[in-house]
């Protein structure tokens, strides 16, 4: 589960933009889209279109979506940036 501190860690990370991009790609390419609540997907699309993926709520949503669809891949991605402890 995504925690507020994990979201903070991502946002403060020197590669925050890259991490968010990789998390977005997990949401866009997963074959387990059936596990993603369409309401969350719609919200994510709104954040993307309004260029506001780099705020607390958006990253929290992105983690929720990714962990529901690709828990291992998400943890691995975070681990690559040293953020995997709580996921």
């Amino acid at each position: 589960m995504a925690t507020p501190s994990m979201v903070e860690e991502i946002l403060k990370h020197q590669h925050a933009e890259k991490i968010i991009e990789e998390l977005l790609d997990i949401a866009l390419t997963t074959l387990n889209a059936v596990n993603i609540d369409p309401r969350d997907g719609e919200q994510l699309a709104d954040y993307f279109i309004n260029k506001s993926l780099n705020n607390h709520e958006a990253v929290s949503l992105l983690l929720k979506i990714d962990l529901a669809a690709e828990p291992d891949k998400t943890r691995k991605t975070l681990k690559n940036y040293g953020i995997a402890r709580e996921a």
């Binding site: 889209a33 993603i36 997907g41 719609e42 994510l44 699309a45 993307f48 279109i49």
Partner: peptide, 13 residues
């Protein structure tokens, strides 16, 4: 074949 929210993201791109 993708959910509509993905279509929206791709369309915007």
């Amino acid at each position: 074949k993708d959910p509509l929210w993905r279509l929206k993201i791709y369309s915007s791109i």
